[in-house]
């Protein structure tokens, strides 16, 4: 076996993190994207800017703030402790929270543009055919935005796979608990274990490449992210 037990654990954590993060992001990203696509609120641009922030912000900055917030002396971590829980920094849950912030624009933006592309007409048609707002959303908007959902899921997933800075800041590097692939690779390089670094990198490269191929093949009109 070329991959060590630690490497396999890192692979497992990485995949679990990406799956959980993508699911959570689809759950909260869908209503957010729907609102962004439909709302005429004049200060909408501020929310759009906040959503897009992780695109430009160095991951270490995002990670730092999250660490402060989630740590035992931060507002969230403090609250968790007061409620008898443990602070979230250096836990898998902490990683999930960090990843959700980090990958947010990669899920929200494709969904938002997919919802915008539908236009108002199909929803008005559905309204005249007795469909309530929620009914219209699930039977018209969601199916018509199908390719957008695929794009959002794959991008969110792939982006979470390659996470480094945020994870390092709030998850640390605990093998078997919070050590993800990209950090394992970094460790191998630090230790001059190039063979292992090669194998792990190849796994990530292949994974990302094949996922993007699937997206492009299924969705020709695909545009990655519009800032």
């Amino acid at each position: 076996m070329i991959l060590s037990e630690n490497d396999l654990a890192a692979l497992g954590i990485t995949l679990r993190l990406a799956v959980v993060t993508t699911l959570i992001l689809l759950l909260i990203g869908t209503p957010l994207a729907w609102w962004l696509a439909r709302s005429r609120w004049r200060f909408k641009f501020m929310i759009e800017a906040i959503v897009a922030l992780p695109l430009v912000l160095p991951p270490t900055v995002l990670g730092f703030y999250l660490l402060v917030a989630l740590g035992p002396h931060g507002p969230v971590g403090g609250l968790m402790e007061a409620l008898g829980g443990r602070p979230l920094a250096f836990t898998f849950t902490g990683l999930v929270i960090g990843s959700v912030f980090y990958s947010l624009p990669f899920v929200v933006q494709p969904l938002q543009s997919a919802f915008s592309a539908i236009g108002r007409r199909p929803l008005e048609v559905a309204a005249t055919l007795r469909a309530s707002p929620l009914d219209r959303f699930f039977t018209v908007a969601v199916p018509l935005a199908g390719p957008g959902f695929l794009t959002a899921a794959v991008l969110g997933f792939a982006h979470t796979l390659g996470e480094f800075g945020v994870v390092l800041m709030i998850g640390g590097n605990i093998p078997g608990v919070t050590q993800v692939l990209s950090i394992a690779i970094y460790d191998h390089v630090e230790a001059l274990e190039y063979t292992q670094a090669h194998w792990l990198s190849a796994v990530l490269l292949l994974f990302s490449f094949s996922m993007l191929m699937v997206v492009y093949a299924l969705n020709r009109r695909f545009s990655v992210v519009q800032p």
Binding site: E124, V125, A126, A127, T128, L129, R130, A131, S132, P133, D135, R136
Partner: peptide, 8 residues
């Protein structure tokens, strides 16, 4: 609109 018995 979805409660109005009309066709459009």
């Amino acid at each position: 609109p979805h409660k109005r018995p009309l066709g459009y």
